[in-house]
Computed example of a mutant assay.
Amino acid sequence: MSSPTPDRSAEPPADAPRAAAPDPGTPPLPQITEKQARRINAPVQGMIISMAVLLLLVLPFVWLQPRPDAQPYRPDVDVAQEADYVAEEAPFPPVVPEPGEDWTANYARWDAGAAEGVPYWEIGWATPQGNFIGLVQTSLANPTWLAQQTEAVPVSATAEAGGVQWDVHVREESRDRDALTVYSGEVDGSTVVLKGDAPGAELDHLATAVTAALAEVSDPAPTEQP
């Protein structure tokens, strides 16, 4: 009795490509329904709506705020009043220049010289061109103090203003330091230093006002007798 011969017609040919077996390490892609998608997107949509409502509430307040002044606030110090306060303590008459109404005094103060040993009177102005000039006055100057006040910038020229010859110290702007121009001179027994970022014309103007004010103090006009 012969054994049955297996039917090989159902077997694929030896050279036929085999189907790739699924990778057991790859997780199946999740499938979500339309209802689940709407539920996932709902918080994002709610956040966008909340931000839009918040902007609508805030913007009117922003629009109603006053615009900042293009000119920054600059305090106008009463230099004459401050000079009266220190006149009794100072060993020299503190100068009160009058450079003009368009010059704004930022400060006027007395330094008793506890650190340097040289008491001095100082004033700072904002100039009409938006620059700054500081004044320092003393009658007890020494070379060390003067070098500190001029920031050790050497004399590069001289200038005449108000009938006084001023030494001019100029430092050019560099990567780590600002430009600086300093006038230093002897005016009626006082050493006066003017320094800042202002051009020479404004320094000349203030120097002239300083010499006029000190000349008036040292030689006051006689009062008329009745």
Rank of each mutant, 00 (worst) to 15 (best):
S3T: 12
P4N: 11
P4A: 12
P6D: 06
R8A: 11
A10N: 09
P12W: 02
A14I: 12
A14W: 08
A16D: 07
R18P: 01
P22V: 07
P22T: 10
D23Q: 15
P24W: 10
T26I: 11
L29I: 09
P30T: 03
Q31T: 11
Q31E: 13
E34T: 15
Q36I: 13
A37H: 13
R38W: 10
R39T: 05
N41K: 08
N41P: 02
N41Q: 15
A42T: 08
Q45E: 13
I49L: 09
S50D: 04
M51C: 07
M51D: 01
V53P: 00
L57F: 15
V58M: 14
P60A: 07
W63E: 14
W63Y: 13
R67K: 12
D69K: 07
D76G: 07
D76W: 07
D78P: 00
A80R: 06
A80M: 05
A80Y: 07
Q81F: 05
A83F: 13
E89N: 12
E89F: 05
A90W: 11
P91H: 04
F92M: 05
P93D: 11
V95A: 14
P99V: 06
G100V: 11
A105G: 03
N106D: 15
R109N: 13
R109D: 12
D111G: 00
A112P: 01
G113C: 03
G113V: 01
G113L: 04
A115E: 08
V118D: 00
V118L: 02
P119L: 02
P119K: 01
Y120W: 10
E122M: 12
G124C: 07
W125K: 02
A126E: 11
A126L: 15
T127G: 02
G130I: 14
N131C: 10
F132G: 06
S139D: 12
A141C: 14
A141H: 08
A141E: 13
N142F: 05
T144E: 11
L146V: 12
Q148R: 01
Q148D: 14
Q149R: 11
Q149Y: 03
E151S: 08
A152Q: 06
V153K: 08
V153H: 09
P154R: 04
A157F: 13
A159P: 05
A159V: 10
V164G: 03
V164S: 07
V164K: 09
D167F: 09
D167Y: 13
R171C: 04
E173L: 12
S174W: 08
R177A: 09
R177L: 05
D178L: 04
L180C: 00
T181G: 02
T181I: 07
Y183C: 04
Y183P: 00
S184Q: 07
E186G: 04
S190I: 10
V192Y: 00
D197I: 03
A198W: 12
G200E: 11
G200S: 11
E202M: 08
E202W: 11
D204W: 01
H205N: 10
L206E: 01
L206S: 02
V210R: 00
A212Q: 10
L214I: 06
V217E: 10
S218G: 15
D219A: 15
P220K: 04
P222W: 10
E224T: 15
E224M: 08
